[in-house]
Amino acid sequence: MNIINIEHITKIYKVGLEEVHALRDVSLRIDKNEYVAIMGPSGSGKSTLMNMLGCLDTPTSGKYEFKGVSVSEMTDNELAKIRNKEIGFVFQTFNLLARSDAVHNVELPLIYAGIPTAERRERAIQALIDVGLKDRLHHKPNELSGGQRQRVAIARALVTNPSIILADEPTGNLDSKTGEEIMGLFHEIHEKGNTIILVTHEEYIAEHAARIVRLKDGLIESDERVERRYIPKIKTTVAQ
């Protein structure tokens, strides 16, 4: 069963009198436990598509069904609920709360899900252990390295057990070695049965995925299954 089904989606931004066609005509189906990389040059509409998939934004026209339910007709509150329960975001700039420690950052989505304090603490700590940050539970973002920050963000995305993980250039702010480690973590997450959609413009990052969708000028240029690059088994719980 597919989780995501979009058909003939367009997105037009109005900038003054000019119209920017960020997405022209995009159709895409993504099944459970897929690992998709979205590639394309800067300005090709990758982020716009991601925001659409993540129910952060609604298309100008076209159909979007998430798990068989039409998203275009949803109210603001329903969208918020879907984002909270079904989607885990990972951003290029981490977007952690600067003055809160790792545990609080990770438990944030659970607060909005209405989970009681004790349970969400426990789940947040478990998620942090899962991404290998057992020793960094009460560190604030500025006390963590870039890779560790992104791990906190990934833990935050995973903690609600979402249907899909959306990562928009998650390694864009990291050096290549740390980027590889984060990709190793995504690999593990995928192995556990999660669905991952990843935006990148770097081939060696995209090679981790099983399917590459290439965008250009708001159109899908190609969509193909690929041979996955060999991933060295990184034991994330010890890797720092």
Partner: peptide, 16 residues
Amino acid sequence: TKEIGLRKAIGAKRRT
């Protein structure tokens, strides 16, 4: 602003 964006992205409703 960015924090608000993040909170909304991870499920905060308007009224929250």
